[in-house]
Amino acid sequence: MLSKRIIACLDVKDGVVVKGVQFRNHVVMGDILELAQRYRDEGVDELVFYDITASSDHRVAGTSWIKKIAQILDVPFCVAGGIRTWQAAERILNEGADKISINSPALERPEFITELADRFGTQCVVVGVDSRLAQSNQAGSISDRQSETQKSSETQQSDIMSAPHRLASDNQWVVYQYSGDERKTIRAQYQTLDWLKIVQDHGAGEIVLNCMGSDGVRRGYDIPQLMAARECLHIPLIASGGAGELSHFADVFRDARVDGALAASVFHNRHIHIATLKNYLHTQGIEVRR
């Protein structure tokens, strides 16, 4: 049986691994190669390296460390950060990365997903989606400032009439862009579930759903959002944001039926040891590679 994947995410900034709380206030967690090797030895199934400021700084993820990682790692890894051209993707894949992950460039131009999938195969193309619950029931191509404005009941009524599936009581998640840098983070024009389907239709091989509301606070994955995402996807889905305890991993695999669970700080600071986590999941009847 296909096992559930435990994925360690290393946010890279200026050549070192960092971690922030709810995408902010980044603190240094350690050396890239050292952490990569440690996770491999602990039995991690996959690693993701996010050059978190590459996209908002308008540059491509550095390649000097990618080759070094490829030389030491014998488990798959993915590189993300500022990949806007197929040439940049090719360079990273040729350095030895197994997958590339794109986020903001896909939002700017969804056809880019298709171009990458056609050239390198759908299995190489991961799309990261940063998403959280909207502040109000309004979604679409408007800014947060607008959406926070109190709307008249008449307008709300007309929204309900025209789009009954978008009631305030429904969970409405929206996509954010450039979330690596809080000063540059903006709300994108898509509702999350719509965007996930667009991403899948454009040929993505996998989606990492970063649930911003739960990221870094360790109270568990955003199960309702991930369940909703799972319902509308047939490609692999990776949960990201919120892991704090062993039970959170069991919950997300059981309830949201995700293919993999990604975490960062709980692994970096040794709160959770990957081998211990896998033994625990095994006792919970969840298929893992041990």
Binding site: S3, K4, R5, Q123, E206
Partner: peptide
Amino acid sequence: TAEPGKTIPHMGWNQ
């Protein structure tokens, strides 16, 4: 073969 609840590509560690 496409089946309910089965993701394609087959991606990950299998026995």
